[in-house]
Each structure stands twice: as structure tokens, then as C-alpha cells.
Computed example of a mutant assay.
Amino acid sequence: MTTLLDVAKKANVSKMTVSRVINHPDKVTDELKKLVYEAMRELDYHPNVIAKALANRTTRIIKLCILEDIDTTEPYYMNLMIGIAKTLDLHQYSLQLVTRRNFDIGNCDGYIITGMRESDVSWIKDLKKPVVLFGENRYGLDYVDTNNKAATYLMSQLALEKGYDKLIYIGIDSKESFEYSREAGYLQQVQEKRMIPELHRFGNHSHMAEDFIDDNWDKIEKNTAFVCASDRLAMGIERGILRRGGKIPEDFGVTGFDGVFLNQVASPKITTIKQSIIEMGSACGENLLDKIQNGTSQGSLVFEPNVSLGGTLRN
């Protein structure tokens, strides 16, 4: 049977280095990892992760719990899971997707939770295992997210720089931190320009935004830009304007938020805030594993927004 020592000899490194590559790959150079992994493959060596987990009373399982309707967020969460899974795989952890209903079935070493609402705060705070949230919160829980306020401030500023006279905010009807922050960015920009704010909130469904345009078309002035809280809402605004014969971007501007997929399939493509979802998923995994290992709070990790230009704002 191939041993750790055999791998060390084959790779011409110490036994301790092999152990570090297996258990803490983030603390080893890429060159050393390549040597050890090649030796492991040649010798067909597989670390006994299960035995180690049993000895340490761990499971090597991380649960990802999505608490919102995934039908209105795909393919957003697919990218998030890819990012989390890649990081966990490097550390020999498995990712298990759970819902609120089956949350307590089976053991795990920690949780990554997204889609949290105010009603979820108490039971999440009572969890005995380490937790990292994906999504901004104001309840003192560790989280990873985009700088939501800076993003809509930046997008509102861009729309004004393109020459639009009025900004209308189309938000998600949710009493959660991320939405408040997105609204705050828009409001700060229009207040700085001494403009009158106009906000409307809907469920995150494109048909609701499209219906809004249809119902209010006679009241909407030309040279207006719509700052939307999601690409899904932006698609609805875009469809509504085009169906009514409006010209985008000549007479109306539209911006979105997410930049995962929907902005690319819209016609014209939507100018949007592109979130680094895979990278943020990876950060969730890293922060949770650090929390499991060190037992300390990781605080908040905020990614700065990037604008992805499409065809829904003037050049």
C-alpha cells in the first residue's frame, strides 16, 4: 500500500510538505503542489480523508442553503455554487445543497446561507456550527457581497453622464439589506444632482416591469433612464419600451444588476453591474473554512462593482 512517505520520496520533498499540500494547499506554492500531485497520481495515492474526518469528529461537508425562490435567480446561483465547490474541493470538502425544509437532515462542519430574510435571523444566529452568509446583512453575521450602494450610485452617475434627464429606479420588493443599499446608491446620486427621485418596487419578475411600462407609458417622458435592481427587471423594462415603439438607447436608457447571463441574451444587451459571482462564491468557501479552523469571525468581505457595457445606454 502506498504511503505518505512513498509520495514524499517520489516528489523529492519532505513528508511534512506532502501533508501540508493535502491538508492546507493554500499555504503551499503552486510548484510544490504540482510536484506532490504528480507523485500522487503516478503512485495512485489517495488520502484517507474519511478516516481523518472520523478521527477529528468532522464530516468534511459544507451545507449551502438557499432560502429564496431559485426560479427568479437562475443562473445566478449556479455560478455561486461553482465558486464555492472549487474552493471546497481544494481543501477536500464536499458541498451539499439543502433547503430550509431539509436543513437539519445530516451533519456538517458549517453553513453557507443565502437569501436570508429578517424572519430567518433568529434561527441562523442559534446555529451551533460556523456560518457565512452570501448577501449583505445588518445583523452582525459574517457575509460576502457586492458593494450594492456603490454599484447603483455608479450606474446612476453613468446614465446622467450619457445625457439622460431623468432617472427612475425599478427595485425588488424586498425589505432586505441589499435592496435598501441599492436604493440608497440611486437616491444619493439623484439627491446630489438635486433631482426628484422616483422609485417603484416589484417582485423580481420581468413581466411585472413590462406591465409597469405598459400601464404608465403615457406618463413616461423621453430622455429617461431606468436604473433596475436586477437584470430580470431590466429585461422587462426593455421589452415594455420596445413593444410601445420607444427607442433604446436614443430616447430611453436601461441599466441592470447582476451580469450573469440575462443581460447577454437581451436585445439590445443590457448595460449592467457585473457581479463576480464565482469569485464571491470562492470567498464564501475560504471565509467559512477559516472560521471553522480558527473559530473567529470573518466580518464582511465586499467586492467593488464593475460596469459591463451593453447597448441600452448611449455611447
Results as ranks from 00 to 15, higher is better:
R239C: 11
G240L: 03
I241T: 06
L242N: 05
L242S: 07
L242D: 08
R243C: 07
R243P: 05
R244W: 03
R244A: 10
G245T: 05
G245P: 06
G246L: 00
G246E: 03
G246A: 01
I248M: 14
I248P: 13
I248D: 14
I248Q: 12
P249H: 12
P249D: 11
P249F: 14
E250N: 15
D251E: 14
D251I: 05
F252R: 06
F252Y: 15
G253M: 07
G253I: 09
G253N: 01
G253A: 07
G256L: 13
F257V: 09
G259M: 07
V260A: 03
V260C: 03
F261V: 03
F261N: 07
F261E: 08
L262T: 00
N263Q: 02
N263P: 02
N263C: 04
Q264A: 08
V265C: 09
V265L: 10
V265W: 11
A266V: 01
P268V: 02
P268K: 02
K269N: 00
K269E: 08
K269A: 03
I270W: 00
I270Q: 03
I270T: 00
I270C: 01
I270E: 00
T271I: 11
T271N: 11
I273A: 11
K274P: 10
K274E: 15
K274Y: 11
K274M: 15
Q275N: 07
I277F: 00
I278W: 02
S282L: 03
S282E: 15
A283I: 12
A283Q: 14
G285R: 10
G285T: 00
L288R: 04
L288D: 08
L289M: 15
D290C: 12
D290E: 15
K291P: 06
I292F: 13
Q293E: 15
N294H: 14
